[in-house]
């Protein structure tokens, strides 16, 4: 019996009423305008922006009100306006880890001049498990994933 079960990637597809260039520009260039504020990893200060440097190996980070920066990852592939591949390097302990890497691929497809489909895939999720096994204590700590566990508990008991 196969003892290794890899979780499937998280996949999302949406359609926006915008041409492909604009769809790409808003996604990559104005991330701070749409990124959920509740998902800041900087606990010391309020998140004021999320920045994706528009180039290969560009940094992906959030900026706090006090000027501090918290890194999320970096750009693995930069192919405007059709594709961007990001390294998500926030581990299960909810901290940046240069040695941890999961991929988020975002593909933009023009359905017509004013409509664009976006397909997002967050993969290599099994690596969260490897990381979690390494740092079980951090995983159980206050903050970070406590929110998930609460949501999860509600889901599981529903």
């Amino acid at each position: 019996m196969n003892l290794h079960i890899s979780p499937a990637p998280v996949r999302k597809s949406i359609v926006v009423k915008a041409g492909i260039d604009k769809a790409f520009a808003v996604f990559t260039g104005r991330m701070g305008r749409w990124w959920p504020k509740s998902h800041s990893i900087n606990r010391a200060t309020e998140q004021i922006d999320v920045v994706l440097e528009p180039q290969l190996r560009g940094r992906w980070y959030e900026r706090g009100a006090d000027g501090s920066e918290c890194q999320w990852g970096h750009v693995l592939a930069w192919e405007p306006p059709s594709r961007v591949l990001l390294a998500w390097q926030i581990g299960a302990d909810w901290k940046f880890d240069a040695d941890f890497l999961t991929e988020v691929e975002i593909r933009f497809t023009a359905e017509n001049a004013r409509t664009t489909r976006i397909d997002l895939e967050h993969r290599n999720l099994e690596r969260f498990g490897e990381k979690a096994a390494e740092s079980r204590a951090a995983f159980d700590s206050e903050g970070g994933w406590m929110g998930i566990l609460k949501v999860y508990a509600e889901t599981a008991t529903a």
Partner: peptide, 25 residues
């Protein structure tokens, strides 16, 4: 505390993020 929980969280996270993105567009 397992992967299932992380996956649920990420799924919700990206749903919320993309909703925000569509609104911004």
């Amino acid at each position: 505390k397992g992967l299932a929980a992380i996956r649920i969280w990420l799924d919700q996270f990206w749903t919320e993020a993309l909703d925000g993105y569509v609104a911004e567009v």
